[in-house]
Amino acid sequence: MLKDITFGQYYEASSPVHKCDPRVKIILMLCFIVFIFVSQNAFALALSTVAVFFVLLLSRVPMKLFLKNLKAIWFVLFFTAVINLFYSNSGTVLLHFWKIEITTGGIYRSIFMALRIVLLIFISSVLTYTTTPNSLTEAIERLLSPLKYIGLKNAVHTFAMMMTIALRFIPTLIEEAEKIMNAQKARGADLENGSLVERVKALIPILIPLLISSVRRAYELAEAMECRCYNGGEGKTRMKQLRMSTVDLYAIIFIVVFAALVITLNIIF
């Protein structure tokens, strides 16, 4: 049951998207999201769709992985589509009953909105599929580093360190939770049956030992970090330097052209 939890969905492949600097990727993804929202008409959105699919293909991540992510939000998608169906009363009336009427304008709007969400999910999945959690953390740290000029110097480093340690300990803690569950089952604990309240109660003897051992781990880790000369990131350097390459240049050119086209299409039509 716990083994199903996967953290970070990195998909190993060799593609220009994988090679792109994670900092650039994060910024470009944010740009993409903005432009998908800015696309006001069918032409602009069609262009966005083409651009998103171009990036998907370029990433060499199998399409079924992206579709899997859609499955998780099918309800939101469905809900958006249905709500928007009744939102517009432009165009010809196709269906009329009681006070509700469905128009061509409504159908158009419903497809438009749903497609926007699909594109948003796809483009953000590209980021997580092509970037390791570690480089994501590092990129976030670098991108947030200007915050140190407004007195948040330690906050950024602390946040990044927390992310790194969390990523490191999630598999360890999952393993430990499984061990404790098995130990409690061996003593006759029933975790699968009973009412919701009973099952929640049955979790307590698992959570408490897990919590206690985590505190103990944290204490030992702190000592070990101290022994490795950690003093809160003061004067710390990095072995792996993030470097921008020509791939990043192409990516930036791509996004600028894309932006220009979206804006033009929005104005023309």
Binding site: L167, R217, E220, E223, C229, Y230, T237, M239
Partner: peptide, 30 residues
């Protein structure tokens, strides 16, 4: 100093990045 439980001494989720943790704290060149 090395302790009893190896799990509670490793900081990063990639081996070489973990080994780099100490030297990085010392502020050495990449």
């Amino acid at each position: 100093m090395v302790f009893q439980n190896p799990d509670n001494q490793l900081v990063a989720s990639i081996v070489e990045e973990d080994v780099a943790f100490g030297p990085e704290n010392l502020g050495l060149e990449p």
